[in-house]
């Protein structure tokens, strides 16, 4: 039973991380219909930035809480800036180009960023400091649920609530929803579509950055390639839930996280990635609209 709960919680925290990344995919897809292939790299850059800042702060002797907050803030700021810049350089000029052109550009951007970090930093795995301490009150159940699992779940839940409020009740959230429904109409009623697209990229990138920091601290090491696999898995989660749908992304992520956790826990961990990729292929083939997505018919 303990093992089951352990797997359950590790699955949930896995799912929470996927959700943080998947939201970026789904929001961007909802607004400009692009699979932002470079999104995984934003997550990786978030992890690197928080790693660099956290290490410096540790050397300077900052207290643990300050390190977490400041490193997280730095990760968010820089990832958001990267997200914003990428959109301006690689996607904005292609807004009226065929869909595949933008996708190819996104793939190029992803390769570029990976190798940029490889060259600017290192190709080795870097040991990531454990930012989240083992809480004393968690002691009795620590063998089942780790402190960082708990923190990941709490942080993700808080972030999701904030995001929901932002999208449901603020002006900018309404404008985002309007733009994703009909970009031309949104433009006609006076919404600054360029700004909305930028904001979407900024929000998505910030979420990915938080995910990047949390997961890096949880796993304890990073390298330039972590964004690729995480990106694909998060994308799988987004499609599973129904790409374009925000609750769908969360749902899909939790489902993917749990299945992965149980499959590796009870069956075998050798094929962990094969499993995720197969799931991706199967969903796209049999139910491309996902769990909560709408079926889109092409008007002729």
């Amino acid at each position: 039973m303990d093992y089951f709960i352990e797997l359950l919680f590790s699955g949930l925290s896995r799912g929470a991380i996927y959700a943080l990344i998947a939201l970026g995919y789904t929001m961007v897809y909802g607004i400009i219909g692009l699979i932002n292939f470079a999104h995984g790299e934003i997550y990786m850059i978030g992890a690197f930035t928080s790693f660099i800042i956290a290490t410096i702060l540790t050397i300077l002797g900052f207290p643990a809480l300050a390190i977490i907050v400041l490193a997280g803030l730095a990760a968010v700021i820089w990832s958001a800036s990267y997200g914003y810049t990428i959109e301006k350089i690689a996607y904005k000029p292609l807004r009226h180009a065929p869909r595949l052109s933008a996708l190819i550009s996104a793939i190029g951007m992803s390769m570029f960023l990976q190798n940029y970090v490889l060259l600017a930093q290192t190709s080795d795995f870097l040991p990531f400091p454990q930012l989240i301490p083992d809480f004393a009150f968690m002691e009795p159940i620590a063998h089942i649920v780790g402190s960082s699992d708990m923190v990941i779940l709490v942080v993700t839940t808080v972030v999701m609530i904030c995001l929901t409020i932002l999208i449901k009740y603020t002006r900018i959230g309404k404008a985002m929803r309007a733009t994703s429904q009909d970009r031309t109409m949104a433009m006609l009623v006076g919404i600054n579509v360029n700004r909305i697209i930028s904001v979407t990229f900024i929000i998505g990138s910030s979420l990915a950055a938080i995910g990047g920091m949390l997961v890096a601290s949880h796993i304890g090491q990073i390298n330039f390639y972590i964004g690729f696999i995480a990106g694909i898995k998060a994308f799988t989660a987004a499609v599973l839930g129904g790409i374009g749908s925000i609750p769908g992304a969360v749902l899909g992520s939790v489902v993917l996280g749990l299945t992965e956790s149980f499959a590796t826990g009870y069956i075998s961990s050798d094929y962990e990635d094969v499993f995720a990729f197969s799931l991706l292929v199967l969903i796209l083939i049999f139910k491309p609209s996902g769990i909560l997505g709408k079926v889109d018919t092409q008007k002729v």
């Binding site: 595949l100 994308f235 094929y271 292929v281 796209l284 083939i285």
Partner: peptide
């Protein structure tokens, strides 16, 4: 046979997934 029915961008991702599956296997 199964994937070519898909829309362009989904096709791209499915083929990517397939490539990785072959390698991982």
């Amino acid at each position: 046979i199964p994937v070519l029915r898909l829309r362009g961008d989904y096709l791209a991702i499915v083929t990517l997934g397939f490539g990785e599956i072959i390698r991982l296997v």
